[in-house]
Design a protein around this nucleic acid. Structure first.
Lengths: 335, 335
DNA sequence: CTGAAAGCGCTAACAT
DNA sequence: ATGTTAGCGCTTTCAG
């Protein structure tokens, strides 16, 4: 029934060498005679050898694995950044275990637990929330297990290394752009995450700074589509005349667009929309949303770089990397 | 430096029990005295114990892990189906390791290799291609390692268990719908995957059967957006009058829509579009695409069910499950 | 450059 | 219901 998997010992037998030499051939190829190496590799290939990670990491307590956890792989922001991180980890000799927490605390906790069980060397984590009172219990276990963590995008309270967006500045930048395009009498509706979300609140602060003498209404939802959609919908039902909306992330903006279109209005003509983060598929559907875009490749690079340095026990002179956003306005001048 | 992780032995010491009892407390709680169990669990919690998977799977050669590999997690078809599968695996006591192959053979191979190294109990795989000549080399290793595989959605040559869409029927169903709405003189452009893709060709066959006396032009791209976009664009540049397009999966349809809109035309008014698979975000942007939709939850259920039965060594009386599609036409009658 | 011995943390198999 | 023994496959000493 259970076919026996090929082990180092099998290769050792076949080559009349000891298993440790075989082991070295894979782990430290330069510590073994080139001729021997060739013999080993050939035998391994013939036998179709595949190393056993369990055995390896059991002994060496170094798994060469980085864990990635984020709240929503289907959100292109996380999807793309994860893709870039995976590539970069590979280049650095690390494999990746990725978990989608599906915006659920329960899954996030489970994912972290899993990663600890797998003895990963480090974790890059985007939490489901950036609320100031969001204090996951798993940080204890992480500390106990001595596994370094780099937070990505979603900041939370406490002393954590991380790579973040310059939320305040991003909102300020696009706020200034908005200021140029709309009279001060213009009412502006901002839809963000919870009232205590650090990310959301920094963005709101940025907007307020740029639009200090505008009539700004802030509405709280979360960083998903549905609640934002409902909020926008009820606002439009009240009065759709001359409205300007700002979505504080791409999912929120999608919700706003959905509400606009459902109410028979034309985005950027009847109702103007701005966004933080690029809006997925808006190019496909031909709707230009001026937005703050962020260099996801750079963020991925920084996050991977940071976690690897932490894994190597390096001291970080700066445990926070802040990525500045770039204003991305449509060429075609729809707005 | 290296903090020692808590092990069973630590709990054993603390409770004056043997490690095997502690082990049983976690793996077979009913094989241990309830009072003892309580003591163990309490001690474990106090010590913040986290089991070591490497040790466990090294010994027991049963990892309780299912691997999932698919070509594009950002494609909602795979994103959602994966989500459902993860939930279902959890319910059955399996953890999931998921890999995105990013439509790259190299990554797919690497993912499978990884899963073998992790000694997963089974793999649910959607390959990057369903071309008849796509014969990944890793099936040998899989067979050697005795790891069962269930293919999902993308069929390939050979004797593989799998859960598939009834591609021929799906295309036939929507083909009939199209036949009702367009005169026989109507030219219909179908954009599919490669000329040797089994999935694509089955769908084309279905269309041909339903639209046997129509003027059908089949164009080959792949199951991603870009090529389909280019194809549609060049067709529209030639002549955009009274065209009807069919996209053979959601990504292709997105490419078609992009081309239409870029050419200043209105989807479903100037140019009519049909799709296999729901088109992501089309509801958000208010464009109704009549399509064949598939019960992803059911597919996920079948795939997980099948892999678990294979893991348990059960004989499958039918190693192929075919899911029938449902015609999904807009209520608002845009078409 | 290669090998022998020991042990990582856990769990089958066999006691008691 | 609990304990003893042994060993999974690999790699870290320490020797040669």
């Amino acid at each position: 029934m259970t076919k026996k998997r090929i082990t180092l010992a099998d290769i050792a037998k076949k080559t009349n060498l000891s298993s440790i030499t075989i082991s070295r051939a894979f782990s430290y190829p330069d510590k073994v005679n080139p001729e021997t190496l060739e013999i080993v590799l050939k035998a391994a290939a013939e036998l179709n050898y595949i190393p056993n990670r369990a055995a390896r990491s059991l002994k060496s307590h170094q798994s060469k694995i980085i864990g990635i956890v984020n709240p929503n792989m289907s959100n292109p922001f996380f999807g793309q950044i994860t893709r870039e991180m995976v590539m970069k980890c590979q280049e650095q000799g690390y494999d990746v275990l990725m978990f989608d927490s599906y915006e659920l605390a329960e899954f996030e906790t489970k994912a972290i637990q899993n990663l600890i069980e797998f003895s990963v060397d480090g974790i890059i984590l985007s939490t489901i929330s950036s609320d100031v009172d969001y204090q996951p219990t798993y940080f204890d276990s992480l500390k106990n297990s001595d596994i370094p963590v780099v937070l990505l995008d979603r900041e939370i309270e406490g002393d954590h290394a991380g790579v973040y967006i310059d939320n305040l500045d991003s909102a300020y930048q696009i706020g200034q752009y908005i200021a140029k395009r709309h009279a001060k009498t213009q009412r502006i509706d901002i839809i963000g995450a919870s009232a205590i979300s650090m990310v959301s609140n920094n963005r709101i602060a940025g907007f307020r700074a740029a639009l200090y003498d505008y009539d700004i209404a802030v509405h709280h939802a979360d960083f998903e589509m549905q609640l934002a959609y409902e909020k926008a919908k009820s606002l439009l039902d009240e009065d759709s005349y001359n409205r300007v909306f700002v979505g504080l992330n791409n999912q929120i903006t999608l919700g706003i667009i959905k509400a606009i279109i459902e109410n028979g209005l034309k985005p950027q003509i009847d109702v103007v929309v701005y966004s933080i983060d690029d809006v997925p598929y808006s190019d496909v559907f031909g709707i230009n949303i001026p937005c703050m875009t962020h260099n996801l490749s750079e963020m991925a690079f920084q996050a991977v770089n940071m976690i690897i340095r932490l894994i190597n026990g390096e001291q970080l002179n700066d445990s926070k990397v802040i990525i500045r956003g770039i204003l991305n306005t449509p060429k075609s001048g729809l707005v």
